[in-house]
Amino acid sequence: MDLLPDEEQQAIIDQTASFLESELPLARFHELGGQPEELSDEIWKTIAKLGWFGLGIPEAQGGVGFTLAEESLLVRELGRVLAPPTLVATLLGARCAALCDAVALRDASLAGEVRVAWAQSRDEFSLGPGGAVSGRFHVFDPGGATHLLLLDASGARLIEARGLGEARVLECLDESVGLAEVELDGASVLAFLENGADSIRARASLLVSALLVGQCEATRDDAVAYAKERVQFGKPIGVFQAVKHPCADMAVGCEAALSQLVMAALVVRDGLADGLFQATAAKLVAARTAVKSAERNVQIHGGYGFTTEYDAHLFVKRAHLLDVLAGSQRELTQVLLAEKPPH
């Protein structure tokens, strides 16, 4: 029984963090100037070479051979710097392709030639002959996307994104993430990974939780750093309990969300019976904490937090975006009430 990273896992965390610090620092949002971020082909290929997309895929299926535990730790680092959600969709897409024996798609994903966008159903989508999908979707990070990832209780589906016809470009709550509305009319499914054959639903929940946990930690650190340096009434504002206590709550939230992420990752990895419950709990706790922490961080930054010159606003917007991926709070409520918690 050990819930802390071992040396190898810590090395993954450290390498990821140092890569992100040089390639995807938070400061990049100032250059984006409120436009959706689209990663360059160069950086995408580098990421593929680092093995992120195949990290948790067994070696026999072309992957790196680590597990969901290592994936969660890696994705948590992505969350800290608000890396584009398409990275996680692509990681999940590669798994779908690999486990469905869609070898060409798998290899292209691992080689960095595939970009998967999250497709969030606007209402229930319908399945036609051969499993073809029809319905209306919000697609996040549509720019450069080659495939769409559709998740529901039955599993995960990969659909080719090219030739979808006219997508309606929308303005996303989070302006650093592109958003389009896409109408699918009998789109064919390239790979369908059934939930049950793989714990794909729990995995998707968990990896979005990992993004959220990283974000919780980043907002906590941002708030604490500001509370130490900002002086009012002749003192750093972190002296005042009205500021200190919300910071403490953010720390407790991080501890709860991170602990639950790790526990759930191990339970799902080990195939234990309460995997879906634990992963759903992880997502709910992480999403609630991320939103609350991001809001408090804005409040602690005062007038500066209200501007785009500081990063505080980015976390609020991204937290709400991630909240809807892989199960919104309303859907999670239903799962949590239906699943039996462990005892």
Binding site: L3, L4, S259, Q260, L332
Partner: peptide, 23 residues
């Protein structure tokens, strides 16, 4: 229902926190 689901999730998180702190 929402509050109940949240409680269930948080009780799970509490247990996880304890195991992390023992680790």
């Amino acid at each position: 229902a929402g509050k109940l689901a949240t409680l269930r999730a948080e009780v799970a998180a509490l247990r996880s926190m304890t195991y992390v702190s023992i680790s």
